[in-house]
Amino acid sequence: MPVAIADALQLTIDEGGRVCVLTGAGISAESGIPTFRGTHDSLWSRFDPMRLATAEAWREDPALVWGWYRWRMQLVRDAQPNAGHRALADLAERIPLSLVTQNVDDLHERAGSVVDAHVHGSLFALRCFACGCAHEGVLDDYVDGARRVEPMRCVSCGDRIRPGVVWFGEALPDDAWDAATDAATHCTLMLVVGTSGLVYPAAGLPAVARRQGAIVIEINPEPTALSADADHVWRATAAVALPLLAR
């Protein structure tokens, strides 16, 4: 582990500071979850994910969109948290830490973390497309290889149940964004893990932290749009770096 990063974390601990962790698709990719734009699965390879993740696509063909999301949900269900997820849960037991994620999976929670903000929503926070009521029932059955799956119906109004993710053209959830900006504003050190830094407004959170005097550390095997503005950069994957940091 780079000495400067170890020193920055130790200084935060010694001075009673708070850590904010912002995670992106890279940490879950190490558990076998393909990134949003990176799927090469033959079932969906001819579809543009960015065209499926809209309210317009849902209105046009809800069975196709729900089929894609049920496939994604099954990938998440079959995956397991990796060493990076578990290290963050361990770290949070020992120091004040806020966890903000751009990911829509539940691997952080399954590793034992409390997530302060899912800024892009959650696959499993199902709700009605029409009335917004939360769906409290179980998921429908999914047959592997099914491209079209008719969505479940809302018990309140009868309309279709949709995934709880933020689609293109939709605003971020107010409560999640408020929690994320609060965590960035009040931290003394921010870890930016496995995110490209291209998706706003979440990509602006490190700048919020820096304006308040926080140290920003990027952990990513590749350079990103955020690298030039980070105080320290560690070229490693989350599953390699975070266990070392937690120790």
Score class of each variant (00 low, 15 high):
41 D>F: 07
29 A>S: 14
32 G>I: 11
145 G>N: 11
26 G>M: 12
64 L>K: 10
244 L>F: 00
166 V>N: 07
3 V>M: 14
32 G>F: 09
221 P>S: 09
212 Q>F: 00
215 I>E: 07
133 C>F: 09
23 T>I: 03
102 Q>S: 14
131 C>N: 11
6 A>D: 02
151 P>A: 14
100 V>G: 12
231 D>A: 04
200 Y>M: 12
197 G>I: 02
22 L>E: 08
87 A>D: 05
53 A>F: 06
175 D>K: 07
169 G>A: 12
55 A>C: 15
140 D>F: 08
194 G>N: 04
141 D>L: 11
99 L>V: 03
170 E>Y: 04
231 D>E: 04
190 M>F: 00
45 S>D: 15
107 L>T: 07
45 S>V: 15
138 V>I: 09
20 C>S: 01
130 A>M: 07
218 E>G: 05
130 A>T: 07
118 H>I: 11
63 A>C: 09
111 A>L: 13
188 T>Y: 00
125 A>D: 12
101 T>E: 15
65 V>G: 14
46 R>V: 08
126 L>C: 11
177 W>G: 12
242 L>P: 02
101 T>W: 12
224 T>S: 10
4 A>M: 14
105 D>G: 12
120 H>Y: 03
14 D>T: 01
3 V>L: 14
75 L>H: 01
208 V>H: 01
149 V>M: 14
139 L>I: 11
131 C>R: 04
140 D>M: 13
216 V>Q: 14
129 F>M: 13
243 P>D: 00
154 C>Y: 00
146 A>H: 09
165 V>G: 14
103 N>P: 13
112 G>F: 03
116 D>F: 03
88 L>F: 06
89 A>H: 06
234 W>P: 02
5 I>D: 07
183 A>W: 03
83 A>F: 03
187 C>D: 08
70 R>V: 01
90 D>K: 10
74 Q>M: 11
86 R>F: 02
146 A>I: 05
214 A>Y: 00
25 A>N: 05
153 R>S: 14
